[in-house]
Simulated assay, not measured.
Amino acid sequence: MNPDQMTIPYITDTNIASYLDKMTFAKNTFKSDYEKGYDTEYGNDMDKRGYIIGIELSLYHERFIDLVKNQAFKVIRTEWRNTEFHMITFYYADDVFKPENIIYKLTDEEDAFVIVELIEPEKLGFHYTDEKDQKRPIALFKALISSIDDIYPLEYMMKPEFILRKDI
């Protein structure tokens, strides 16, 4: 895929708030529920305050190309909870705004959030070898929502660093 084709559209959509309000809002922060209420496919890259500084997605290259070419990755400016937010989506809107997805605040300041889908580990091919291990759902990132430009600058959201790895 030509890198020039990897564009992320920037749009304004004030209707997003109504979708967010219908979703489940976690009581705890994302960091405090980690390894208690959910696991992730990969380790969480978080700073000491709980802000995510790196998101890893498992996408086969065909799926990634499909999402990028069809502009599923979007940066959306919206107003929610009387605050202006920017949201970057990692999937199509139908996958992001499912009412059963969970919104986690990253810190108690409630200035950044993630939308995750909780999936049973077996559906993703994970199998626990030790019966004593507690099975927790896997959190799959669907979107990042932020009102803070110093940690999540708009320029970065529009041109994130995609690192593609091909398994041998």
Rank of each mutant, 00 (worst) to 15 (best):
L140P: 00
Y104L: 01
N15I: 05
V75Q: 10
H86R: 14
F73I: 03
S146P: 07
P153S: 08
G50W: 07
T24H: 11
I55C: 03
T107H: 08
A26K: 07
T89M: 04
E110S: 09
I76K: 04
L20R: 00
I76D: 02
F97M: 02
I148D: 05
L118E: 08
N82Y: 08
I115D: 02
V116R: 05
I138Q: 04
Y152A: 06
R77H: 11
F73C: 04
L118T: 03
A139M: 07
D39M: 13
K123N: 11
L67M: 13
E109H: 14
P121C: 04
T83L: 04
K142F: 01
F30P: 01
D39E: 14
I76L: 05
L124W: 03
E155R: 14
G43L: 13
E122A: 09
L59Q: 15
V114G: 01
W80Y: 14
W80L: 02
Q71R: 15
F126M: 05
I88Q: 11
K98F: 06
R49Y: 12
D39R: 13
L20V: 00
D13T: 08
F30D: 00
F90S: 03
G50R: 04
T29C: 01
Q71N: 15
I119Q: 08
A143P: 12
A93L: 07
K74N: 07
V114E: 07
G50F: 07
N82H: 12
R136V: 01
T83W: 01
H127R: 11
A112D: 07
A17Q: 12
T78W: 06
K142D: 00
S32V: 07
Q71K: 15
V68Q: 11
L67D: 11
E35W: 00
F141A: 03
S32L: 10
D33G: 05
T78N: 09
I65F: 10
M157L: 15
